[in-house]
Design a protein around this nucleic acid. Structure first.
Lengths: 120, 120
DNA sequence: TATTTGTGTAACCGAATGATTACATTTATA
DNA sequence: TATAAATGTAATCATTCGGTTACACAAATA
Protein backbone atom coordinates (compact mmCIF):
# COMPACT_ATOMS: atom_id res chain seq x y z
CA UNK A 1 0.00 0.00 0.00
CA UNK A 2 2.80 2.36 0.92
CA UNK A 3 4.55 1.35 -2.32
CA UNK A 4 1.44 2.10 -4.31
CA UNK A 5 1.16 5.57 -2.84
CA UNK A 6 4.84 6.18 -3.47
CA UNK A 7 4.64 5.12 -7.11
CA UNK A 8 1.52 7.21 -7.63
CA UNK A 9 3.20 10.24 -6.14
CA UNK A 10 6.28 9.70 -8.28
CA UNK A 11 4.21 9.42 -11.42
CA UNK A 12 2.20 12.49 -10.55
CA UNK A 13 5.10 14.69 -9.58
CA UNK A 14 7.90 13.56 -11.87
CA UNK A 15 7.31 16.34 -14.39
CA UNK A 16 9.73 19.21 -14.54
CA UNK A 17 8.44 21.92 -12.26
CA UNK A 18 10.85 24.80 -12.33
CA UNK A 19 10.71 28.44 -13.24
CA UNK A 20 12.03 27.81 -16.76
CA UNK A 21 9.13 25.44 -17.35
CA UNK A 22 6.74 27.98 -15.81
CA UNK A 23 7.69 30.73 -18.25
CA UNK A 24 7.93 28.45 -21.31
CA UNK A 25 4.24 28.91 -22.14
CA UNK A 26 3.06 32.26 -23.55
CA UNK A 27 -0.24 32.12 -21.65
CA UNK A 28 1.63 31.66 -18.37
CA UNK A 29 3.93 34.56 -19.22
CA UNK A 30 0.84 36.69 -19.81
CA UNK A 31 -0.65 35.56 -16.50
CA UNK A 32 2.58 36.57 -14.76
CA UNK A 33 2.29 39.93 -16.50
CA UNK A 34 -1.25 40.43 -15.27
CA UNK A 35 -0.47 39.42 -11.71
CA UNK A 36 2.56 41.71 -11.59
CA UNK A 37 0.12 44.63 -11.47
CA UNK A 38 -2.14 43.30 -8.75
CA UNK A 39 -3.45 40.07 -7.23
CA UNK A 40 -6.40 38.71 -9.19
CA UNK A 41 -8.98 35.99 -8.67
CA UNK A 42 -9.06 32.99 -10.98
CA UNK A 43 -12.05 34.36 -12.86
CA UNK A 44 -10.46 37.77 -13.22
CA UNK A 45 -7.40 36.15 -14.75
CA UNK A 46 -9.55 34.03 -17.06
CA UNK A 47 -11.45 37.07 -18.34
CA UNK A 48 -8.27 38.21 -20.06
CA UNK A 49 -8.03 35.12 -22.26
CA UNK A 50 -10.01 33.40 -24.96
CA UNK A 51 -9.42 29.91 -23.59
CA UNK A 52 -11.69 28.22 -21.05
CA UNK A 53 -11.56 28.83 -17.32
CA UNK A 54 -10.44 25.25 -16.56
CA UNK A 55 -7.53 25.77 -18.94
CA UNK A 56 -6.56 28.85 -16.94
CA UNK A 57 -6.99 26.86 -13.73
CA UNK A 58 -4.47 24.35 -15.01
CA UNK A 59 -1.95 27.04 -15.92
CA UNK A 60 -2.39 28.55 -12.46
CA UNK A 61 -1.87 25.10 -10.94
CA UNK A 62 1.43 24.76 -12.80
CA UNK A 63 2.47 28.25 -11.65
CA UNK A 64 1.59 27.20 -8.09
CA UNK A 65 3.62 23.98 -8.41
CA UNK A 66 6.55 26.02 -9.72
CA UNK A 67 6.04 28.28 -6.67
CA UNK A 68 5.67 31.37 -8.86
CA UNK A 69 2.36 32.31 -7.25
CA UNK A 70 0.73 32.06 -3.84
CA UNK A 71 -2.98 31.79 -3.29
CA UNK A 72 -5.10 33.71 -0.83
CA UNK A 73 -8.58 32.32 -0.28
CA UNK A 74 -11.12 35.03 0.49
CA UNK A 75 -14.42 33.26 0.98
CA UNK A 76 -15.16 31.49 -2.27
CA UNK A 77 -12.80 33.71 -4.23
CA UNK A 78 -9.17 32.77 -4.63
CA UNK A 79 -6.66 35.53 -5.19
CA UNK A 80 -3.42 34.70 -6.99
CA UNK A 81 -0.39 36.62 -5.78
CA UNK A 82 2.83 36.66 -7.72
CA UNK A 83 6.17 35.88 -6.06
CA UNK A 84 8.44 37.90 -8.33
CA UNK A 85 11.60 36.86 -6.48
CA UNK A 86 11.11 33.38 -7.92
CA UNK A 87 12.10 34.77 -11.31
CA UNK A 88 15.56 35.71 -10.08
CA UNK A 89 17.18 32.36 -11.08
CA UNK A 90 16.19 33.07 -14.68
CA UNK A 91 17.76 36.50 -14.42
CA UNK A 92 21.03 35.06 -13.15
CA UNK A 93 21.03 32.33 -15.77
CA UNK A 94 20.54 34.81 -18.58
CA UNK A 95 22.84 37.43 -17.06
CA UNK A 96 25.86 35.12 -17.37
CA UNK A 97 25.59 35.43 -21.16
CA UNK A 98 25.26 39.20 -21.23
CA UNK A 99 28.98 39.73 -21.81
CA UNK A 100 28.82 37.33 -24.73
CA UNK A 101 26.00 39.05 -26.54
CA UNK A 102 27.31 42.53 -25.77
CA UNK A 103 30.63 41.62 -27.35
CA UNK A 104 28.85 40.29 -30.39
CA UNK A 105 26.59 43.32 -30.74
CA UNK A 106 29.54 45.66 -30.16
CA UNK A 107 31.59 43.98 -32.86
CA UNK A 108 28.64 44.18 -35.24
CA UNK A 109 28.24 47.89 -34.55
CA UNK A 110 31.96 48.35 -35.03
CA UNK A 111 31.66 46.58 -38.38
CA UNK A 112 28.79 48.87 -39.40
CA UNK A 113 30.77 51.96 -38.42
CA UNK A 114 33.76 50.78 -40.44
CA UNK A 115 31.50 50.18 -43.40
CA UNK A 116 29.92 53.62 -43.10
CA UNK A 117 33.22 55.49 -42.86
CA UNK A 118 34.54 53.69 -45.92
CA UNK A 119 31.47 54.68 -47.94
CA UNK A 120 31.87 58.39 -47.15
CA UNK B 1 -1.38 17.33 -53.68
CA UNK B 2 -0.63 20.95 -52.85
CA UNK B 3 -3.16 20.72 -50.02
CA UNK B 4 -1.47 17.62 -48.70
CA UNK B 5 1.91 19.31 -48.60
CA UNK B 6 0.42 22.35 -46.90
CA UNK B 7 -1.28 20.30 -44.21
CA UNK B 8 1.85 18.26 -43.63
CA UNK B 9 3.94 21.40 -43.25
CA UNK B 10 1.46 22.92 -40.85
CA UNK B 11 1.39 19.77 -38.74
CA UNK B 12 5.15 19.53 -38.70
CA UNK B 13 5.85 23.14 -37.87
CA UNK B 14 3.01 24.14 -35.58
CA UNK B 15 5.03 23.63 -32.42
CA UNK B 16 6.23 26.64 -30.43
CA UNK B 17 9.74 27.52 -31.51
CA UNK B 18 10.91 30.47 -29.52
CA UNK B 19 13.75 31.19 -27.15
CA UNK B 20 11.59 30.51 -24.08
CA UNK B 21 10.89 27.05 -25.43
CA UNK B 22 14.57 26.61 -26.25
CA UNK B 23 15.70 27.22 -22.68
CA UNK B 24 12.86 25.30 -21.05
CA UNK B 25 14.77 22.02 -21.16
CA UNK B 26 17.73 21.55 -18.76
CA UNK B 27 19.75 19.61 -21.34
CA UNK B 28 19.39 22.46 -23.82
CA UNK B 29 20.44 24.97 -21.17
CA UNK B 30 23.52 22.86 -20.53
CA UNK B 31 24.26 22.71 -24.27
CA UNK B 32 24.02 26.50 -24.40
CA UNK B 33 26.45 26.62 -21.48
CA UNK B 34 28.92 24.38 -23.26
CA UNK B 35 28.72 26.29 -26.53
CA UNK B 36 29.18 29.62 -24.78
CA UNK B 37 32.81 28.63 -24.20
CA UNK B 38 33.60 27.51 -27.73
CA UNK B 39 31.99 26.00 -30.83
CA UNK B 40 31.73 22.22 -30.56
CA UNK B 41 30.89 19.39 -32.93
CA UNK B 42 27.80 17.30 -32.34
CA UNK B 43 29.84 14.44 -30.93
CA UNK B 44 31.80 16.75 -28.66
CA UNK B 45 28.52 18.06 -27.28
CA UNK B 46 27.15 14.54 -26.87
CA UNK B 47 30.23 13.42 -24.89
CA UNK B 48 29.11 15.69 -22.08
CA UNK B 49 25.82 13.88 -21.54
CA UNK B 50 24.60 10.45 -20.56
CA UNK B 51 21.81 10.38 -23.13
CA UNK B 52 22.23 9.03 -26.66
CA UNK B 53 23.75 10.98 -29.54
CA UNK B 54 20.49 11.06 -31.51
CA UNK B 55 18.81 12.62 -28.48
CA UNK B 56 21.46 15.34 -28.52
CA UNK B 57 20.96 15.73 -32.27
CA UNK B 58 17.29 16.42 -31.64
CA UNK B 59 18.02 19.01 -28.96
CA UNK B 60 20.47 20.68 -31.34
CA UNK B 61 17.80 20.64 -34.03
CA UNK B 62 15.39 22.45 -31.72
CA UNK B 63 18.08 25.00 -30.84
CA UNK B 64 18.64 25.50 -34.57
CA UNK B 65 14.92 25.94 -35.21
CA UNK B 66 14.80 28.48 -32.40
CA UNK B 67 17.77 30.18 -34.08
CA UNK B 68 19.89 29.94 -30.93
CA UNK B 69 22.75 28.21 -32.75
CA UNK B 70 24.32 28.30 -36.19
CA UNK B 71 26.07 25.36 -37.79
CA UNK B 72 29.41 25.35 -39.57
CA UNK B 73 30.09 22.24 -41.59
CA UNK B 74 33.79 21.37 -41.71
CA UNK B 75 34.12 18.25 -43.81
CA UNK B 76 32.13 15.56 -42.06
CA UNK B 77 32.16 17.41 -38.79
CA UNK B 78 29.51 19.96 -37.88
CA UNK B 79 30.38 22.71 -35.49
CA UNK B 80 27.63 24.33 -33.46
CA UNK B 81 28.07 28.02 -32.79
CA UNK B 82 25.97 29.87 -30.26
CA UNK B 83 24.16 33.10 -31.12
CA UNK B 84 24.07 34.67 -27.67
CA UNK B 85 22.19 37.76 -28.86
CA UNK B 86 19.15 35.54 -29.33
CA UNK B 87 18.87 35.32 -25.55
CA UNK B 88 18.29 39.05 -25.25
CA UNK B 89 14.46 38.83 -25.43
CA UNK B 90 14.52 36.64 -22.33
CA UNK B 91 16.68 39.21 -20.60
CA UNK B 92 14.23 42.01 -21.41
CA UNK B 93 11.25 39.93 -20.39
CA UNK B 94 12.76 39.09 -17.03
CA UNK B 95 14.24 42.56 -16.52
CA UNK B 96 10.77 44.14 -16.43
CA UNK B 97 10.11 42.33 -13.15
CA UNK B 98 13.37 43.31 -11.50
CA UNK B 99 11.86 46.31 -9.72
CA UNK B 100 9.14 44.05 -8.36
CA UNK B 101 11.45 41.47 -6.84
CA UNK B 102 13.92 44.09 -5.58
CA UNK B 103 11.11 45.82 -3.71
CA UNK B 104 10.04 42.53 -2.20
CA UNK B 105 13.55 41.52 -1.20
CA UNK B 106 14.23 45.02 0.18
CA UNK B 107 11.12 44.94 2.31
CA UNK B 108 12.07 41.51 3.60
CA UNK B 109 15.53 42.72 4.53
CA UNK B 110 13.98 45.73 6.22
CA UNK B 111 11.75 43.39 8.20
CA UNK B 112 14.78 41.32 9.26
CA UNK B 113 16.65 44.44 10.35
CA UNK B 114 13.66 45.59 12.41
CA UNK B 115 13.48 42.18 14.03
CA UNK B 116 17.18 42.20 14.82
CA UNK B 117 17.18 45.65 16.40
CA UNK B 118 14.21 44.71 18.60
CA UNK B 119 15.99 41.60 19.89
CA UNK B 120 19.09 43.53 20.99
C1' DT C 1 -33.59 26.60 2.05
C1' DA C 2 -32.94 26.82 -2.87
C1' DT C 3 -30.04 28.85 -6.09
C1' DT C 4 -26.20 31.15 -7.94
C1' DT C 5 -21.28 31.91 -8.00
C1' DG C 6 -16.30 30.79 -7.87
C1' DT C 7 -13.35 27.28 -8.28
C1' DG C 8 -11.29 22.66 -8.82
C1' DT C 9 -10.95 18.38 -11.16
C1' DA C 10 -11.97 14.12 -13.80
C1' DA C 11 -12.23 12.18 -18.35
C1' DC C 12 -10.94 12.73 -22.75
C1' DC C 13 -8.35 14.14 -26.98
C1' DG C 14 -4.73 15.37 -30.31
C1' DA C 15 -0.18 16.91 -30.54
C1' DA C 16 4.51 17.65 -28.75
C1' DT C 17 8.42 16.05 -25.97
C1' DG C 18 12.21 13.39 -25.00
C1' DA C 19 14.12 9.26 -25.20
C1' DT C 20 15.46 4.83 -27.61
C1' DT C 21 17.29 1.61 -31.58
C1' DA C 22 18.14 0.86 -36.31
C1' DC C 23 19.47 2.54 -40.48
C1' DA C 24 21.03 5.95 -44.23
C1' DT C 25 24.33 9.21 -45.98
C1' DT C 26 28.38 11.77 -46.55
C1' DT C 27 33.25 12.36 -45.81
C1' DA C 28 37.82 10.94 -44.41
C1' DT C 29 41.18 7.40 -44.19
C1' DA C 30 43.67 2.72 -44.32
C1' DT D 1 38.30 0.98 -52.92
C1' DA D 2 36.71 -0.79 -48.64
C1' DT D 3 36.06 0.81 -44.16
C1' DA D 4 35.49 3.86 -40.39
C1' DA D 5 33.67 8.09 -38.53
C1' DA D 6 30.33 11.95 -38.00
C1' DT D 7 25.92 13.03 -38.42
C1' DG D 8 20.98 12.95 -39.50
C1' DT D 9 16.58 10.72 -39.42
C1' DA D 10 12.79 7.25 -39.38
C1' DA D 11 10.07 4.35 -36.46
C1' DT D 12 8.57 3.63 -32.03
C1' DC D 13 7.23 4.44 -27.22
C1' DA D 14 5.67 6.47 -22.82
C1' DT D 15 4.73 10.76 -20.92
C1' DT D 16 3.45 15.55 -20.81
C1' DC D 17 0.95 19.55 -22.57
C1' DG D 18 -2.76 22.28 -23.50
C1' DG D 19 -7.08 22.35 -24.55
C1' DT D 20 -12.15 20.81 -24.11
C1' DT D 21 -16.78 19.48 -21.64
C1' DA D 22 -19.08 17.79 -17.72
C1' DC D 23 -19.47 17.57 -13.09
C1' DA D 24 -18.55 18.31 -7.93
C1' DC D 25 -18.45 21.24 -4.03
C1' DA D 26 -18.15 25.04 -0.90
C1' DA D 27 -19.55 29.80 -0.07
C1' DA D 28 -22.59 33.63 -0.84
C1' DT D 29 -27.17 35.18 -1.71
C1' DA D 30 -32.26 35.46 -2.89
Amino acid sequence: MITFIFVTKRLLFDMRRDVFQAIADPVRRDIIGLLSNEPLTVNMVAENFEISRPAISKHLKILKECDIIDIDKQGREIYCIIKPEKLVPVFFWIEQYRKLWEEKIDSFEHYLNELQSKNK
